[in-house]
Each structure stands twice: as C-alpha cells, then as structure tokens.
Design a protein around this nucleic acid. Structure first.
Lengths: 237, 237
DNA sequence: AAAATAGTGTCTTTCAGACAGTATACA
DNA sequence: TGTATACTGTCTGAAAGACACTATTTT
C-alpha cells in the first residue's frame, strides 16, 4: 500500500489505514414551560461520569445521514416520533470524551410542553430547568445538576442559537400547540431571552407580521377574562 | 465480543467493530472585492468530477481537533498562516461523496483582498466570483464553473450565514485591512447582502455604534476628495 | 472650472417602549 | 362589586430611508 499521510489529498486515501474519529449525534431537547427553558437529560449510571447528566445521543451509522441519525436517536432513546429538529453545531475537541475520540454533531429539537411531559412519563429522560448566565441545569428542587462531558457547553450554544434566531424566525411556534394565546407566545419569547417584554409592542409586532390567524375562539379554564386563540398561517413550522 | 448494534449506547461500544464515516473539514475562503464576494477553489484533476471545482479540504486526524484541522488545511493546502476561521455547518448526506462515506465539517474563512491575492499567486487555488440567487460561481470571464460534490450547497450556506450575521457582528472587519474608509466598509456590506445601502444611514449606524476610531489620516491615490481612514476599536476581529 | 466622491443637515416614516385606559371574564 | 387579565389608543423617542446640500480633492 502506498504510504499517504493524513494530510494528503482525499483522492487515493485508504480510510481503513488510519485511526479516525467516531461520529455521534447528541440531541438538545428543549421546551418552554412557565416562562423557563427546560431540557431533557439522561442520568449516567456507568463510568465515566457516573451520576452526571448527559444529552441523549448515539453513533452515526455508515448508511445513515446525520439528520436520519438524529431522528433515530429521538425515536429510540427518547421515544418520540417527530419534532422540530435542526443541526446546531459540531463539537470536536480531542479530549471531549475520555473513552475515545468522538466528533459529535449536536441537534436542537424544540418540543411542546405536552411532548416533553410524555417523554418524561416514558421514563428514560428527565427534564431539567436551564437558568442563569452562564447556564446552569437545575432539578425540580432548584439543585444544580452536574453535566457530563462538554454537554454544558452544548446546552449553552443551543440557548444562544435560540436567542439569536427567535426574533426573526418561526422557531417560537415549535414550542407551542396548534392554537395558542398571544400571552403564551410572549412567554416563549421571554423564556428564551431570559427577559420580560413590553406587551403592546409585542402584540403589534406579532400581529403586523401577518403570520398569525385569529381563530375567534378563546382559551378555556381561565379564572379571568379568556384570551383569544391564534394559529400560524399556512403550515409554517 | 459482545454483539452491540450501532444504535446501542456508546458505553461498551467497540469503535473498530463497525464501519464508520470518515470526517473531513472543507474551507470556504471568501473575500469581498469590488462589491462582489469571491471564493477560493481548487480545480479537480482526478475522477470523480475531474474538471470540477472544489473547496480545499482534508481529513481530520485522530489527535487533532476540528479547529486545528481547519487551520492545518488552511496552512498546507492554501498556504495561508492565519485567517478569521469559524465553523459553518456539517454536511453528512450518505451519498455526498461517491468514493466513501464522508461527513464534512465546513469552515468559513474571511480574507482580506491582499490575502486572497497572495493565495492565488501561490498557485494552488483560484478565485471565483459568487453571484446570483441561487448562487453561482463564475470565473473572470463570467462563465459558470461546475462545482464538485455538494460544494455549491456549502457555498450557499456560507453566504446565508454571512447575510444573517453581518448586521450585528464584527465579521465585516475581517474582510478589510487594519485601516479602511467607510465607503470600503459599506462595499463589504453590499457585497455580502447583494444590495445597495443608503449612505448617510450607513455612516450614522456605524459611527453611532462606537466601534470605529477615526485615525485622522486619509486614503491616498484617489482621483477625488480622499476619505478618512478608520480602524476598529480595541483588538476586535 | 469641471468632475468626482466625501461628508452633513434635515424631513419623513417606521417602529418600539411606556402608560393609561377600556373590556370581559370569575368570585 | 372587586379583581385579574385581555386588549387598545396614544404619546414619545430612536433609528432608518430619502434627498439635497456643502466640502475637498485631482485633472
């Protein structure tokens, strides 16, 4: 066999001749609940980092695209059939996993509250609250959770991505059911941005965008004046 | 050896037991020249896709981070020591390369005109102009170039990334020398966005941002009133 | 003086924040 | 009737587009 260094051109390169990184996908599964971002995590029961919390992930097979691998992990490890999935960033530091060299492609999945609740009931994953800056993950009692590997950095990049895109994209709707109130939409924006927003300005901006359709119906079970329900025009999201 | 399917947990997985994708980095090297974006490409002389133009790229070694691999490719394949490099997106379709399964992490490098000219003179790469929507790559005579693999899609994502970030980030300065006129800065914005901008509004916005420092010097060799030279405050970029 | 571009003053429009007010549900 | 929240009208200020105007250099 011809001797070719790793730096040589791809043409004529024998992929079996050298050690190569493995490729995985990791999923950041987020929902917006009560004006706070929540993420689904798995508790590690094996070394290394036993007791730490990790993102659901898995290897990318040779005959599987990255997007397909992300969808498969969502199905097999989280028990969810469909979600708004988009590629986030690829993490490839040499020592990010002590077991072997792994390059992981992180995906962002945006869930509705009832999707996250169903996944939690299935029992494989647990929701944590994402708070503060820099980001921390907390359990229901407000105790900080230790995150495995570089997963805290991955969660931070996910939140930054949301913050950068929520103003001009449709991603907020992926957190909401088909019909929702303007207050619920504003709650999503506030959860993502970590700030409070001006209500009249928010209403004007959303309505002027022409993307929302009033249904004429109103929310039920409110102990006060019920708000109107809207939906997204077309099949956006 | 225990039989473990590719979908199983990473713990206990033997990376040598299964075929795995290879990982490469590909570089999108852009400059803004005469109000147009230009990219550096390599002409392929081997099958497949001989005669097509490709992005400079190379395999990621087992002991090398993704960022380090991108810097190495920049050095070895383009002959450039340093540039503003940032990760763009990861492309992992199964059939994106007919030779083998390759997942490529695309990086974006922003060059100053003189950096691009020097790389071209070194002879390994050639500059193409990026025009139109959807994006096309043209040579100096305006003839369209065929791009190899999914490299046209990669270039498109790169241009979209620039368009999305130029308004609120510092990336425009990476296209400019240390001292530059406001007209040159506006030219960069117009090249990236593919539109013309309002001059007084652009000046106001840039100066009000407080990021520019007037040097008091003026450009030389203009056949008209010379413009003032500015630089970026601190060591941004 | 002519040509060309740099740089500015100002009008107008648009849009977001602030805040007070009205409307409508439940208790 | 009280209270809580939905929803709206309007003022104000910030910022962008349009456009005309002045300034300064070379030829």
């Amino acid at each position: 066999m011809e001797h070719i260094s790793i730096g040589d051109d791809i043409d004529g390169y024998d992929p079996a001749a050298y050690d190569r990184p493995s490729v995985t996908v990791d999923l950041v599964l987020l929902a917006s609940i009560e004006r706070q971002l929540h993420a689904l995590l798995l508790r590690r029961d094996q070394s290394p980092q036993a007791g730490c919390w990790a993102l659901p992930g898995g290897f990318v097979a040779i005959d599987e695209s990255l997007d397909a691998a992300a969808a498969r992990v969502l199905r097999d490890k989280v028990g969810m059939e469909r979600a708004h999935l988009e590629q986030l960033y690829t993490f490839g530091a040499i020592d990010r996993d002590p077991r072997m060299r792994i390059v992981t492609v992180a995906y962002l999945a945006l869930l509705r509250p009832e999707q996250m609740a169903r996944a939690e009931r299935a029992g494989r994953v647990t929701a944590a609250t994402l708070v503060g800056d820099p980001l921390r993950a907390c359990n229901g009692e407000g105790t900080d959770l230790s995150l495995a590997f570089d997963h805290r950095a991955i969660l931070s990049v996910a939140r930054e991505r949301l913050r950068g895109k929520i103003d001009y994209s449709d991603l907020a709707f992926a957190f909401l059911p088909e019909r929702f109130t303007l207050r619920a939409l504003q709650d999503v924006h506030e959860a993502v941005l970590g700030t409070t927003l001006n209500k009249p300005a928010f209403r004007r901006k959303m309505l002027d965008r022409g993307q929302l359709v009033a249904t004429g119906d109103r929310e039920a079970d409110a102990s006060h004046r019920p708000a109107e329900l809207f939906r997204v025009r077309d099949a956006a999201v």
